[in-house]
């Protein structure tokens, strides 16, 4: 299981990074979403993996998985949503303003006059 989770995070990271390096906003947004998954699972995994021991207190049960990473990741998921929706809208607005959805502006011109 550990191997599956680790390679799963690796796959998410790899595809996320590849899309992050693309030139159009939509791919970058998808890449960020994938990276968010990777990071959330990564954080969650800091509490180690366990099956069938949710952190919900019941009488007579003593084994629980670590609740703290879960609490952190829960807010992280919601914040990732906030971030993703913000950049989606940002990309949309930029496209509507300029008619182009490339991430970069034209390369800045070298300063033609040296400071003097």
């Amino acid at each position: 299981m550990e191997f599956l989770v680790a390679t799963g995070v690796g796959a998410l990271t790899a595809s996320g990074v590849y899309l992050l390096l693309r030139g159009r906003t939509f791919a970058v947004i998808l890449g960020l979403a994938l990276l968010s998954y990777a990071v959330n699972v990564y954080l969650f995994a800091m509490g180690r993996l366990a099956v069938g021991v949710p952190p919900i207190i019941r009488d007579g049960v003593t084994a629980y998985t670590d609740p703290l990473p879960q609490a952190l990741v829960l807010t992280a998921i919601v914040i990732s949503f906030g971030m993703t929706s913000l950049i989606v809208i940002l990309a949309l607005r930029a496209y509507l303003e300029t008619g182009d959805d490339h991430v970069s502006a034209e390369p800045l011109a070298e300063p033609d006059d040296e400071l003097a």
Partner: peptide, 15 residues
């Protein structure tokens, strides 16, 4: 290459 490198690095760390 960068993506695969990052993926491998993260997989190794998590593992």
């Amino acid at each position: 290459a960068l993506a695969l490198g990052s993926g491998a690095a993260f997989a190794a760390i998590v593992h």
